[in-house]
Design a protein around this nucleic acid. Structure first.
Lengths: 337, 337
DNA sequence: TCTCCTTACGAAATCGTTTGCGGTTTATCT
DNA sequence: AGATAAACCGCAAACGATTTCGTAAGGAGA
């Protein structure tokens, strides 16, 4: 079971080396011999053994994908699967295999991700869901292994980072509000520890500052959870001189805020406009449907692979790449009356 | 770069074979020699090369996971990622690696999934998103390669199927409605071609038939899309003697239905109770929040791996396993007045 | 003391490919 | 025509582990 290169060699009366070269289209095999060998290969049902090839070439043609879930990140509400989709497709294009790792805190890995990579002999790694306080982050940055980090900050010789253009996205969100006539625009921030959160805030702040409309009083703390979105609304309600529009740094907080607003009899968007960020599934069916900034997750995954492969081929250093976002307009924002 | 078994052998003045046996804890190596070798191994920073091992043992210790997306199935609304999560964790437990394949129709694979498996030398495969009309379904069933199919019907010597207990889940949904006093209960069916759809219908029908309350007039066709859910409502509205409660065979249709109901000024659950199936993310934030049947997707993934590994070890034949569902009560159902 | 068995390790083949080198044959140039 | 250069293919050594078989040393039993 399993016809090898030797079987073909025997059948044709040539040596295994010749078969290998012919099948790999090396220059030092005659054209007619090549066709003969290829014919025999499919005739015999030959399927190459990647294991053997990898052993001798010392290249695994495999990249490791880490899905980190150390912090109970809800799998339902993030982009994991879409990242993965882009990753797979792009890898496939370049004939790389994907080896999947999932690290959860209950698995309590002792080993650094990098040593897992070394064991499996992957040529590079991409990280999804990495947090800035991950104990192995430094490992990744300093390691000689090429890596791509998705949606987190990580800079180094061998590590590239890919994320949405959070600044531009946030600016687009505010700009949409601005275009509707809003001038008193608030923000529910995410945690300072999250890269995406900082960037979104920066995009927001910069846009309004340039227009002399940034008001410190309108920035409300949050941490990307529903609860913090809800809590922000409570403080907003208490204040006088409320903002007329609100940018939540992610959809989850927007959803939390929305619920409280509705519970208090506030109408969205008549009484206040609300815009989110992420375009998670949930934002589609809430009432009113949430206007938000959509990320192109599949594209992020693809770009992560592109940068990684380039690094593997020594064509670049670690880079940062930011992917366009998209304004998706639904029903939670209205023109200022 | 890369210390091998030979390096340890040289350092200790023994042969590579001895090192291998000691590291694998074979019986024919002396105890003291073993500790010496193990010490040297970590001393030198030895990390075994799985490629070489696989070549000689002829076992890849890898299972292939196929994510099929030939039919534009929305990645956002299904359980893909949670399946995957269970799959990875269970595989990890048994020290199997996961090789990921993604088949989309635009990639237009010519090769059968099985030949991809043969090429990569995986020991088994699990399929997510397989449809009954997949051109390679027969291939999978007849192939000697052990396989697990998630959420689809596939029976054979070497293939196991794992899905939610759709019948029991549907029955639980109706039972909940029944317990609220409803007797005129309708269903928006899914497509006859989908296994889950048939099972859910069967569970529904059986429950009501046993109580002499099944009414053919209350079954409305659908195909698991929002649109079909919306369309069903249109016909419901036209009829007299409407059902007082409605079971949508999946959440997407329930969401479609919900929207139309609300658009027509119908109040849920005051005017009609609505229950879905799947507990997708979207069902959480719609208004009213959708009562539904939740699937334990991670558990399905794990079970798929368990059955697969057992089959690989020749411990079972192809089996079918159905995982418990869970009623998640939210706000879209009310007692019959 | 001699034989037999056990224990512990070495020797060597093997897994399926790849690849540099060397040697023939055939075509090309002066 | 002679020499040089391609073109083409065989040879054999790798790659890093595993595993079977063989054998030397040592202990037990008679």
């Amino acid at each position: 079971m399993g016809v090898t290169i030797k079987d073909i060699a025997r059948a044709l009366g040539v040596t295994p080396g010749t078969i290998s070269k012919a099948l790999n289209d090396k220059p030092d095999i005659g054209a007619d011999m090549k066709v003969k060998i290829r014919a025999a290969a499919i005739e015999l049902g030959y399927v190459p053994n990647p294991i053997a090839r990898r052993l001798v070439t010392n290249r695994s043609n495999t990249i490791g994908v880490f899905i980190l879930d150390r912090h109970e990140l809800s799998l339902r509400e993030n982009y994991g699967f879409q990242f993965l989709d882009g990753i797979i497709k792009e890898s496939d294009l370049h004939h790389y295999d994907i080896l999947l790792f999932s690290i959860t805190k209950d698995l309590a890995y002792q080993k650094s991700y990098i040593s897992l990579c070394l064991e499996r002999r992957v040529e590079g790694a991409v990280f999804i869901g990495l947090r800035s306080d991950d104990p192995y982050l430094e490992d990744i940055i300093r390691s000689p292994l090429p890596a791509s980090v998705i949606d987190a900050e990580a800079r180094g010789q061998n590590v590239s980072m890919v994320a949405s253009d959070n600044r531009a996205g946030a600016a687009a969100a505010v700009d949409y509000l601005w275009g509707l006539g809003h001038r008193r625009i608030g923000i529910i921030k995410g945690s300072e520890r999250e890269f995406a959160s900082r960037e979104r805030y920066e995009g927001f702040r910069h846009y309004l500052t340039e227009r002399n409309s940034f008001n410190e009083a309108y920035v409300y703390p949050g941490d990307f959870t529903r609860e913090s979105g809800a809590a922000a609304v409570e403080t907003i309600m208490k204040s006088q001189d409320r903002p007329t529009a609100l940018f939540a740094a992610n959809d989850l907080m927007a959803l939390g805020a929305l619920k409280v607003f509705k519970g208090k009899g506030y109408r969205i968007p008549q009484d206040i406009s609300l815009i989110g960020f992420d375009n998670i599934a949930n934002s589609e069916d809430c009432d009113p449907a949430l206007t938000t900034i959509g990320q192109n997750a599949a594209e992020i995954g693809k770009e992560a692979i592109r940068l990684l492969l380039a690094r593997i081929r020594q064509e670049n250093k670690g880079k940062a790449s930011f992917i366009r976002t998209e304004l998706v307009i639904r029903d939670s924002c209205a023109p200022l009356k």
